[in-house]
């Protein structure tokens, strides 16, 4: 047993390939035989991943889900920002340039709406729950944009660490909800073309949420959504500590 653990730990990335392969295989079977293909295999795989992340957090008390468990350390590398972005860039190979260009303007509009709507809503929820200072409202509102915009904004305007934690939690909950709800709401949102995926990428924000949500809906839509969503965090980090903070400050003093 000890030797096996050793072999898995010292080859953690390789073990991650095998392990994720197994999850994807099981998910495919569950999709076909349990849901008769109605729920996409990728959606099930992502849910299993989230479940394992919960278990990992419970087991280790760490912040990186399953990858905090020693033998699953390779998951952290395989699913980390480096590999995620590498694989997303690779999907650009399948982008139909004409389609992407057609949706350029509406993509930009979606980006701005995707920053404003969550921010205003998040800040309002914060206010109604008793976080009435401009700094707290802005930090929590920014967290509702993405879990990177939240702490970057908070750090820039001097938020306290518990507000930062709350802001990050808001962003993480949002990313997870986007992953889970996108396939369910795909038909309602009209996610069936490159244009619609670009609108979605701008509005839903969070690259992890968008990429997983679209992957679970239709893999071919991923590059279009990701192409827009990648500008989301930058725009949020730009607007959060500046225009949005000043606007909140002007409103609540």
């Amino acid at each position: 047993m000890h030797e096996l653990q050793n072999a898995l730990t010292s080859n953690s990335l390789i073990f991650a390939f095998a392990f994720i392969g197994l999850i994807v295989y099981i998910s495919g079977k569950l999709s076909r035989y349990l849901t008769m293909g109605r729920v996409h295999g990728s959606a099930i795989a992502i849910l299993i991943g989230l479940g394992l992340a919960y278990w990992g957090g419970l087991e280790t008390g760490g912040t990186k889900g399953l990858s905090d468990v020693k033998i699953f350390g390779g998951i952290g590398l395989m699913g980390g920002a480096m590999m995620r972005d590498f694989a997303i860039v690779a999907t650009a190979f399948e982008v139909n340039v004409i389609e992407a260009r057609k949706a350029g303007l509406i993509g930009v509009v979606s980006l701005f709406l995707g920053t404003l709507i969550p921010f205003v809503f998040g800040a309002s929820v914060a206010y109604s729950m008793g976080y009435t200072s401009a700094i707290d409202m802005t930090t929590i509102g920014a967290g509702a944009v993405t879990y990177i915009v939240g702490p970057v904004t908070g750090a820039a305007i001097g938020a306290s660490s518990d507000i930062m934690a709350l802001s990050i939690a808001t962003g993480v909950v949002k990313a997870i909800m986007v992953m889970v709800f996108t396939p369910m709401l795909a038909r309602f949102m009209g996610l069936n073309s490159p244009r619609s995926a670009m609108v979605f990428g701008g509005l839903a924000g969070t690259v992890s949420g968008v990429s997983a949500g679209l992957a679970a809906t239709d893999r071919r839509l991923v590059p279009y959504g990701a192409l827009v969503a990648t500008f989301h965090t930058g725009l949020g980090c730009l607007m959060g500590p500046s225009v949005l903070y000043l606007a909140v400050k002007a409103l609540v003093g």
Binding site: A16, F17, I20, G21, I23, V24, S42, A45, I46, L47, I48, G49, L50, L52, A53, Y54, G56, G57, L58, T63, K64, G65, L66, S67, F72, I75, G76, M78, G79, G80, M83, R84, A87, I88, A90, T91, A165, I168, A169, V172, V173, A175, I176, M179, S208, S211, A212, A215, R219, V222
Partner: peptide, 18 residues
Amino acid sequence: MYIPVVVAMAAQQNVMAA
């Protein structure tokens, strides 16, 4: 490899904190 990478990404979310 995109989807497997995304599954690995899901497996390292801070679900507890969420």
